[in-house]
Design a protein around this nucleic acid. Structure first.
Lengths: 173, 173
DNA sequence: TATTGTTATACTCTATAACTATA
DNA sequence: TATAGTTATAGAGTATAACAATA
């Protein structure tokens, strides 16, 4: 029972990434499906593991890719600004910036006016890789969302951002 | 946790949970905002940290709560079925089921016909807590999604599930 | 005193492999 | 041999505290 076509998990794909084939005669996760948070989580994990696989081909992770994009788009960014934009802790940006620097994709430049901080700048290789990875990621999203038309996709983006903003506004007790 | 007096961050909330106030004159994360995956991630983290806070009041985490719901809704579930339904590895269900059992919310019953597996059953306390936590979580989602009307919310759920399914179907390269 | 970057640490979630006991 | 549950472990992401250099 339970196992329809997929035997123990196809060689190369994990069980956890298998689609939730409903167990016959069981409710399964139907009750949880009513929660936006649950479907959000499932969609997110699926989506990000695919995105991670795409970026792996460029030697990037999701964290390093998104930092690289922000550094490319904001001239002479400080690390604490990077942290704020991406909503990660300052301390956690260090390893990401280290990785980008060691890969020769960005450089830390000293700021004369404030010698505590660095100005982050992409190298030419960094800009090039950023553009190539971005194109691949766009293509990837187009493929994944192929049966969701542009209007729906725009609506989806809009709803996700409203949800995030709504949750933010509920921060205070 | 959450702690009111940490040093760097604004008193009350961590930097990471701070809203992404656009740094003036900068592009910020605008380019990333075009990616569904990025907004999906941001919405997800915001959402789940809120949900985790709600469940904390019941002594539950997201993982234990969702397992409890599935166990309540599927009679005499096996652990591997639980894993399949929730799309987690079998090995990772063990600690979750342990936690639920130790909290007196479920019990492992031996199955005479197959002594390798357990039949998971909720206790009365487990069912009660499940219902109370579910109600609280529903309320929480209603609050968060207060400015998203029911039609939009249904559309959101539908799109999220289509996205997940779409990503699934792209598993085989 | 406050801020920037940093280090160290811990906790969670996820993934993999290998073991045991049953089948 | 195959499966159910288990153990151990490793990797990422995230969060907190404390420190040095600088403001």
């Amino acid at each position: 029972m339970v196992r329809a076509g997929k035997d123990g998990a196809a060689p190369g794909e994990s069980v956890a990434m298998t689609s939730p084939e409903p167990v016959e005669g069981m409710a399964g996760d139907q009750r949880l499906r009513g929660l936006v948070g649950y479907s959000l989580k499932r969609a997110y994990y699926r989506f990000q593991s695919d995105a991670a696989r795409v970026l792996e081909g460029f030697g990037l992770r999701i964290s390093t890719y998104s930092a690289l994009v922000v550094i490319c788009d904001n001239t002479d960014l400080r690390q604490s600004q990077l942290a704020q934009i991406l909503s990660v802790e300052r301390s956690n940006t260090v390893v990401v910036v280290d990785a980008l620097e060691q890969a020769g994709l960005i450089a830390r430049h000293r700021v004369p006016k404030d010698r505590r901080s660095y100005a982050l700048r992409p190298t030419r290789a960094g800009r090039q890789l950023c553009d190539r990875a971005s194109a691949a990621l766009d293509q990837h999203e187009d493929r994944i969302l192929t049966d969701i038309d542009p209007a729906e996709r725009a609506e989806l983006l809009r709803l996700l951002q409203r949800m995030e903003a709504a949750a933010v506004s509920r921060e205070d007790p």
